[in-house]
């Protein structure tokens, strides 16, 4: 297990180095100099221009810029946003809890509905439930989520008036200090009446929108994995010794069927972060996805560079954790040399 982990960990290092190199080179290729963008139409004196270039290190040779960049990254310096002048890491960390809250709730939503849906479909193979659930799952899988978000806003917010259209909290009614960065927790901590419900109301539509595709994937995966497991001898044995169907499906089969599902859940993390870009844009959710799009529009190289590094880093680490978890629940992998 330890060797397996170590090997897995070592494999991520070249990936990180390549990632550093590529984000660096790619961002240098972006058309439009950040200083040109900033000086705008008012004009800027040549001395000031040179000074600005010097401040940002843009007057250094490119290889030096890369080494500075790599060195900075290793010390937790992800650059400084050209627009806000704040360190990129700080900006990212301020916004990340919003994204994390959204993606975690979406994932929980997907797991809580997806696994039972898959189990029900598998245990009623070919029946009405199976066909309906799998039809819905394929529709969810094929859903353009940006459109799905607009449809839900139209139905739930505009027609029925059930949920707010954008943001994380009603700023006119409630104000509370961010303690954890999670609105659901902060609103409870604030002790203000109705604050928690307000936060839930804001979260619910983005959560559904972002959770739809993973929900479909998990349901489909659980079903097929379950179908495979139900064919196994130990399931027949369990049935033969008189255990109830519910117990066999729910305990004996499910435990083994979940192994591939866990992997799939882990693989959804990248997809969730990609989906978060669209979801946050639709719902004006102040997270890193929306921030990334804004950084592109403002040609804020360092923010884009740092943001993508951080997001890719998170995905790599989560995949590593999933592999470890996979080793834990599946002894065959743990003991394989």
């Amino acid at each position: 297990m330890f060797r397996f982990l170590l090997k897995r960990l070592a494999l991520t290092i070249p990936t990180f180095i390549a990632l550093m190199f590529i984000t660096f080179v790619m961002i240098r290729l972006v058309p439009g100099d950040p200083i040109e963008v900033r000086k705008g139409e008012r004009g800027i004196s040549p001395e000031r221009l040179a000074q600005l270039r010097h401040e940002m290190g843009l007057d250094q040779p490119v290889w030096k810029q890369f080494l500075d960049y790599a060195n900075g990254l290793l010390h937790g310096d992800f650059g400084t946003s050209i627009i806000s002048k704040a360190p990129v890491l700080h900006e990212f960390l301020t916004l990340f809890p919003a994204t994390l809250e959204l993606t975690l709730s979406a994932m929980i939503f997907a797991i809580v509905l997806g696994i039972p849906a898959g189990v029900i479909a598998a245990s009623r193979r070919g029946g009405v439930y199976d066909q309906t659930l799998m039809g819905l799952a394929l529709t969810g899988y094929s859903m353009p989520i940006f459109w799905w978000g607009l449809i839900l806003i139209l139905l739930m917010s505009n027609t029925l008036g059930l949920t707010p259209v954008s943001g994380r909290v009603d700023l006119i009614k409630f104000y509370y200090e961010p303690v954890t960065g999670f609105m659901l927790i902060d609103s409870l901590l604030s002790g203000q009446k109705g604050a928690f419900l307000d936060a839930v109301h804001h979260l619910i539509l983005p959560m559904i929108v972002l959770g739809t595709v993973p929900l479909a994937v998990i349901a489909r995966m659980t079903r097929s994995s379950m179908l495979e497991v139900l064919e196994e001898d130990y399931v027949r044995t369990a049935r033969a010794k008189g255990l109830s169907w519910a117990r066999v499906v729910g305990i004996h089969a499910l435990r083994n069927a979940l192994i591939p599902v866990v992997t799939v859940i882990g693989l959804q993390v990248g997809g969730l972060l990609a989906g978060a870009v669209l979801t946050e844009t639709i719902f004006s959710w102040p997270g890193v996805g929306k921030w990334l799009i804004e950084s592109i529009n403002r040609r804020d190289y360092p923010a884009l560079q740092g943001g993508i590094m951080l997001i890719a880093g998170i995905v790599i680490v989560v995949n590593l954790l999933v592999d470890m978890l996979y080793g834990l629940i599946n002894p065959r992998i743990r003991h394989a040399k």
Binding site: T23, M26, L29, G270, I308, V315, N319
Partner: peptide, 21 residues
């Protein structure tokens, strides 16, 4: 390795980065 790298960046985020360039 290069393929792993591409997979480490969420699809839409990478596509956005490429389009930005």
């Amino acid at each position: 390795r290069v393929m792993d790298l591409i997979m480490a960046i969420p699809s839409l985020v990478l596509a956005i980065l490429i389009i930005a360039i």
